[in-house]
């Protein structure tokens, strides 16, 4: 129990640190939000007026403390660019990212584990090479290219799937595939290597001696052992996806967290940027904790020791 509390405190510290860091960095780097907002029609006067109205002329520590005070009350400020409360923008964008992540992760993990198992069982034969090739492509080809290629193939040439996300489930398939391919590749490789390690284990002999066919022995006994590191990987992948897949969301027109963060960076929209970074830090911290906890829960050898 105290371990959980300790982890919780750790997360809070991380979040505070992140807040401070992003706050300072944003104000040091070149690029002033008023200029960006006013764009081509800026004049010295209008920039000054806008800066004042944004409260950016106050001294740094004052700005930070104001922000902190508000953040504790749940008010993350208002986006300069989009003129809406940051928290509501994030909460509106998150469900899209969540949907994308859910579909993406399912695809990645199901395909990844299947591929890994087949690869291990038929190792060094055709199915293995086939799946390893596909995994390699997934890991090495950048998401942007994968996304464009899938669009070209599935929409342009074969007219099978819609071009962009329009709210329907069907239109989420391509983005999920594009995003998931990379994760699938990692999962497949880790599953394959993990399972192959187990293939020499004596307990597989025991299982066969008990009457299990080789294939069933590998699946029920071998996989159970090999899957541990894969689950940790999956938990980490999940938190990565949840922080927003910028490129996938941009290409397919999904208004998720990644797109929001990108817009915030480009427009130096400080409240929005601070908000999204904070949210991302939270998601990743929690994801890491979940990964650790899952690992401990699943491996009985770790459990009884603690």
């Amino acid at each position: 129990m105290s371990a959980v509390i300790r982890r919780g405190l750790g997360v809070i510290l991380v979040l505070l640190g992140v807040m401070l860091l992003i706050f300072v960095v944003l104000r040091i780097i070149p690029g002033d939000p008023a200029s960006v907002l006013l764009n081509e029609h800026a004049s010295e006067d209008s920039i000054r007026r806008l800066t004042e109205s944004m409260g950016l002329d106050k001294p740094l520590p004052v700005q930070f403390l104001d922000y902190l005070k508000n953040a504790l009350r749940g008010d993350l400020g208002q986006s300069y660019y989009m003129r809406k409360p940051v928290l509501s923008l994030i909460l509106t964008a998150f469900p899209y990212t969540l949907k994308l992540t859910a579909l993406s992760a399912s695809f990645a993990w199901i395909f990844g584990i299947l591929a890994g198992v087949v690869s291990a069982v038929y190792h060094d034969r055709l199915p293995d090479h086939l799946f390893r090739g596909i995994s390699l492509l997934g890991i090495s080809v950048p998401v942007f290219m994968v996304a464009l290629f899938l669009q070209y193939l599935m929409y342009f040439r074969l007219s099978l799937l819609p071009l962009m996300y329009d709210g329907s489930f069907v239109s989420m398939i391509l983005p999920a595939a594009a995003l998931g391919w990379n994760s699938a590749g990692s999962v497949a490789r880790l599953t394959r290597s993990g399972l192959m390690e187990q293939l020499d284990s004596p307990y597989l002999d025991t299982a066969r001696a008990k009457g299990l066919s080789t294939k069933k022995a590998i699946l029920f006994h071998g996989l159970r052992n090999a899957i541990l590191p894969v689950i940790t990987l999956m938990a980490l992948q999940l938190s990565g996806m949840l922080s927003g897949a910028v490129i996938t969301e941009s290409v397919f027109g999904i208004s998720g967290l990644g797109k929001l963060a990108l817009t915030a960076v480009q427009t130096r929209d400080m409240p929005l940027l601070q908000g999204t970074v904070l949210f991302t830090a939270l998601v990743i911290s929690v994801g890491n904790i979940i990964a650790d906890v899952t690992n401990t829960l699943l491996d009985p050898r770790l459990r009884t020791k603690s």
Binding site: P30, S35, Q266, R268
Partner: peptide, 8 residues
């Protein structure tokens, strides 16, 4: 990047 450009 755009913001730094405008700044300069």
């Amino acid at each position: 990047d755009r913001a730094s450009y405008l700044d300069l």
